[in-house]
Design a protein around this nucleic acid. Structure first.
Lengths: 254, 254
DNA sequence: CGGGAGGTTGACTAGCATCAATATGGGTGG
DNA sequence: CCACCCATATTGATGCTAGTCAACCTCCCG
């Protein structure tokens, strides 16, 4: 078990401290978690449906999708994970995978053994709380996806997904116009929104023509964030990433 | 704080022990949780969007929906809760509600203070694990809903929902033909499946004509479970309710 | 007995799927 | 370094599923 540069876990720790108050010591235990580094090529299942896993996969680089499918084999992406996310934290308490994890681009994945996470959680209740809360944030995003595919038209679905990613990638500090990495294809976008790749392409063209956003070379160039949030019917509250400084939660005592 | 007949919590305990191994003593602590009983009329929000709650709502009777909505006010049900479910267990670690809870029928709700749940979880790690896992099971159902509204046609969406409810209500022991309570309207069904009530009505008629299922007087009469599971593209694995006896999980030591 | 929520049916429409053909471009091997 | 190739992107033509609008019915509850 290697302990390569702990800094690779920094991004995940940052996500946790974004919603939960952790002491310096608790933060230290997270940064000291052991892991294996795994390089994954694009479009590769690295966790298969039904597989029983003994480790959590933290994304260090690249985009990863959680895939479900219907019996016709039509795939639906039910979550997109970006660097700093634990893609299957839930496997700590539910090792049998109910969905597959597939890389959307070439990715780097940190594999942390369940055993190590359970040990830390058992000794530090606040860490256990942070992990539990992290799962809840994921679930809140899932709920929004249900609304997205159930009650929005094609433009709003795609617009909403762009907004979600912009916020989660911390790209929205640049005013009304900025760029963020988008390491996935139009086909993936179709799988995520419940549309066909053909229709996705048409919507993207309409966005380009309207000068709202432009997708190019694995990046999204937002030209008009205001209009995009309206088009995408987007309310950032649910992501919990814009909590007031100091408003993070902690239930167990310090 | 009343301690009325603890048996009201039995249903929820049964749900927990369905996926997690708990000792007699741990089970006892759950049954001794304090609660208030609340009667709720149909179509009433008893948890509002954005509200900060200090208690978990366990459903004792009736059906309850978790509602999200887009900015047009079109509502989407992202989860349906039946007796024995904790509708917002996640509020223990995330008190601010990201979705509203609304009764779909007249319902009885047990309000358990967060404080009491946290105290039990702190003293009994296995209970904390069970609660965390319960949230994960909910999330797995959410994922399936995304597939449902994203990648299935109207017949399959409604068929799938019927199958999910049949399993969760434990109604499937009666062979190929049986009945289960269905305490919601066609409008609710539309809100849950991302369809219009008009189209729901047409699909239900086609089910009736094909002699597959019939909805009548707040009950679903399944005539052909085999055909329904095919129509609904249904695989029960994700519900975790059919785990082999003895295959429930427990990570912390006894 | 009256009113309102929920259910049913018909006619028409719109948004997205489907099928098909072609363009582009990044990566790989010769 | 070039040529090829496969994945991805793009565009057009056509059809179908589900939405919309509207009218009417039914049944439960007060």
């Amino acid at each position: 078990m290697a302990h390569p540069e702990r800094s690779s876990l920094q991004a995940y720790l940052a996500k946790l401290t974004g919603h939960t108050v952790l002491t310096a010591q608790e933060q230290e235990t997270i940064l000291s978690l052991p892991f294996h580094i795994e390089q994954v090529a694009a479009n590769r299942d690295f966790v298969s449906l039904g597989e029983s896993v003994d480790h959590v996969s933290v994304i260090a680089s690249g985009f990863v999708g959680r895939f479900d499918q219907n019996s016709n084999g039509e795939r639906q992406i039910t979550a997109i994970h970006v660097p700093g996310d634990a893609a299957n934290l839930h496997s700590v308490v539910q090792p049998q995978a109910a969905s597959a994890l597939q890389s959307l681009s070439a990715s780097t994945v940190l594999r942390i053994p369940h055993q190590a996470i359970r040990a830390v959680a058992a000794r530090h209740p606040a860490v256990a709380e942070a992990l539990w809360r992290d799962c809840i944030v994921d679930a809140a995003i899932s709920s929004q996806w249900i609304v997205n595919v159930g009650r929005r038209d094609a433009q709003s679905r795609i617009g909403h997904l762009f907004c979600e990613l912009a916020i989660r990638l911390g790209a929205t500090t640049g005013g009304n116009s900025f760029t963020f990495p988008f390491l996935m294809t139009q086909i993936h976008l179709a799988d995520a929104t419940g549309l066909t790749n053909v229709h996705v392409n048409r919507v993207l063209r309409s966005f380009r023509d309207a000068d709202v956003v432009q997708v190019q070379q694995r990046a999204v160039m937002v030209h008009d964030w205001d209009r995009l949030t309206k088009l995408g019917d987007f309310d950032p509250g649910y992501l919990q990433t814009d909590i007031m400084p100091g408003a993070q939660l902690r239930i167990v005592s310090t």
